[in-house]
Amino acid sequence: MDNSPQLFQYVLSGLSNGAIYALIGFGFAIIYNATGIINFAQGEFVMLGGMLTLFFLVFLSFPLIPAIVLAILISTVIGIAFERLAIRPLKNATPLSMVIITIGASILIRGIAMLIWGKDTHAVPAFSGNDPLYIAGATILPQHIWIFAITLLIIAANKIFFNYSIVGKAMRACAYNSQAASLVGINVKTMVLLSFVISSAIGSMAGIIIAPLTMTSFDVGIMLGLKGFCAVIIGGMSSGLGTIMGGLLLGLLESLGAGYISASYKDAIAFIILLLILFVRPEGLFKQKETERV
């Protein structure tokens, strides 16, 4: 029996999930690099993207583009509110208090989403239908193409922003040394806020493009968030190639593991990888090991 179409299918769905994980991982990295915070609420913005799109598109019958734009806008506003109300006012922030505050926010956002939209799982219509395209005997959905295209677009935009725009460079300067950055006149607080804006926007975008493939509900944010974190850990907390590779690798392993080993342990695979990386190479797979300093 020829297994290659099946293999292709696994690889395809692994890569498309992996692209999503990479985008979510970017969200983690952008906030972490600006503030040193791991935002445990990152996954909730992914959920918000999917649920808000569903809300406007299906419940309120908006056209696709306005629904997406509104979903991203509202997620971003929530990201801003989160930063202004919970992160900025905190004095004497310790890693522990930051973990707890961002977890609190994530529960809160999830709880409110549940109150508004209920506990049901919803299907979101694909952007351009569900008629599969046949390539070399394997099927590929139009939504897969959307995912890859939009992911590439975001990666490119990200790259251009951080490497070529003044604001992006200022954000990188803050990440490198916030004291020095503020000395040369960069408003560090604004940069922190901006990092929340960008990462909630990217997160919600990831949620929007994956929702038609996986369905969505109020609680998808936990798993997606954790897998995005896994991707960014593999990538060494960078918002660059490492995290993209990390996401794709994770998506592939997960999909192949589910296909050939056991579908019920699909999620466990991601977390076993996460633990192994944290135990063995917490600095990521794609980063040069740095000399330890106390």
Binding site: A86, I101, G104, A105, I107, L115
Partner: peptide, 9 residues
């Protein structure tokens, strides 16, 4: 769940 979240924060 909402109350927990608020309390934590």
């Amino acid at each position: 769940i909402i109350v927990y979240g608020l309390m934590l924060i």
